[in-house]
């Protein structure tokens, strides 16, 4: 039986549906905790949120709401190299680092393919990832579930869930885990947009300021030499070229009073 609960995030056009099922033997999904986790995650996405804090929260909430043993997040650095950003336990952290070092494991596959790698019985994947399977078993884990942190064609990292039971996650828990990963993904992308916007804004402001300073310098040269604005500008540009200076730098020196406006080179015929 499916009772659909849909979250729609219009800004990025992403739709996630979390159904409700109860199948005997499957992991218990705590609906109340899940909703509370989603609200809490959204609540943490303020203008200046910390990515590591939000992903740590995501890992902890996965453990509580989805009833898994451990959760962790791998995120790609701008260089493309994956890093362990958050984990709900030390054992999880060790295992994630181990996956990166040995370059094998379900998290890496989820990240590289952009697809879910779920319901893996670790006892049965010895041939696929021999070193990972052995290490995970040594830490007491029996099943692994990895979810890509992906928006459209871009994959940022992966959310990884481990259980001490070998059984599968039911469809509801899988959908819920993917929903949590999607929200974290959107948060990270939004955060990046804000950082980019701030950089662009400062660049624009600086460019406007140098435009203004050039006008001020033209006014000073014009007054000091009795020339019109056009001639003042050409003299300044000529002087900057002669002395291998940036126009904005020269203008700033003139406007700021360190370079006398009457001291510029004279234009030669043809300049």
């Amino acid at each position: 039986m499916q009772h659909g609960t849909a979250w729609r995030i219009d800004r990025v056009g992403l739709r996630t549906t979390v159904g409700q099922t109860s199948e005997a033997g499957a992991v218990m999904l705590d609906q109340t905790l899940l909703v509370r986790s989603l609200v809490e995650l959204a609540d943490n996405l303020t203008d200046d949120f910390d990515i590591v804090d939000v992903l740590s929260l995501l890992s902890d909430r996965c453990v509580h709401a989805l009833g898994v043993t451990a959760a962790g997040v791998l995120l790609a650095a701008p260089s493309g190299a994956l890093r362990v950003v958050a984990s709900s336990s030390d054992a999880m952290r060790t295992l994630e680092l181990f996956q990166l070092q040995s370059d094998q494991g379900p998290c890496l596959d989820a990240y590289r393919t952009g697809q879910q790698v779920v319901n893996l019985d670790l006892a049965a994947v010895g041939s696929r990832w021999p070193r990972f399977a052995q290490r995970a078993a040594a830490e007491g884990f029996r099943s692994a579930h990895s979810f890509p942190m992906r928006l459209r064609r871009r994959t940022l990292g992966a959310l990884n869930l481990l259980r001490s039971d070998p059984g599968p996650l039911d469809a509801t828990a899988i959908a819920a885990a993917q929903a949590l990963a999607d929200i974290a993904t959107i948060a990270i992308l939004q955060h990046q947009i804000v950082i980019d916007a701030q950089t662009l804004n400062s660049q624009l402001s600086a460019a406007l300021n140098s435009r203004i300073v050039i006008e001020q310098a033209k006014g000073k040269i014009s007054q000091a030499t009795g020339s019109d604005m056009d001639l003042a500008f050409r003299r300044m540009r000529n002087h900057a070229r002669n002395h291998n200076q940036h126009l904005a730098e020269l203008a700033s020196g003139i406007a700021g009073g360190t370079i006398p406006p009457g001291s510029l080179d004279y234009l030669k015929p043809g300049d």
């Binding site: 006008e215 033209k218 006014g219 000073k220 007054q223 406007a255 406006p261």
Partner: peptide, 10 residues
């Protein structure tokens, strides 16, 4: 700003 430059010299 041109005028400000001129007045600053004046």
């Amino acid at each position: 700003h041109q005028a400000a430059g001129m007045v600053s010299v004046q």
